[in-house]
């Protein structure tokens, strides 16, 4: 199989994830789109690992999965805190830093 099949599939998933992050207002949906982006990167790592017959690609994919688990835990805690303070998780309403 061609390496490009995997890389372009990952690029498609990445761009869909970026679209989700840019257009969603609900905080939980933004976190889901971030998971999509991280998965696309993981496909790239595993594909390049297979291409170079290097085990490091898989190992770093596993590390990214662990970091994603940490990220979603902290991210959801922040979203819950925003919900508790403002009764809404609309990320476009959290604009205190806007002058």
């Amino acid at each position: 199989m061609f390496l490009n099949q995997f890389l372009i599939f990952a690029a498609v998933l990445f761009c869909i994830g970026v679209y989700g992050v840019l257009t969603r207002k609900n905080g939980v949906l933004v976190l889901m789109s971030i998971e999509l982006i991280l998965n696309a990167v993981n496909i790239n790592l595993v594909a390049f690992g297979a291409y170079n017959s290097d085990i490091g690609g898989q190992v770093f994919a596993l590390f990214i999965i662990a970091v994603a688990a940490a990220e979603v835990g902290v991210g959801l805690a922040i979203v819950l805190l925003i919900y508790r303070n403002r009764r809404s998780i609309d990320v476009s309403e959290a604009d205190l830093l806007k002058g």
Binding site: G27, V28, E35, I65, A68, A69, G73, L76, V79, I89
Partner: peptide, 19 residues
């Protein structure tokens, strides 16, 4: 990790924020 843990965590987030 993803399907078993992270997805369930996201669904908990949906529930706790009363979406």
């Amino acid at each position: 990790v993803y399907i078993g843990a992270i997805l369930v965590l996201l669904l908990f987030g949906v529930m706790l924020t009363r979406a």
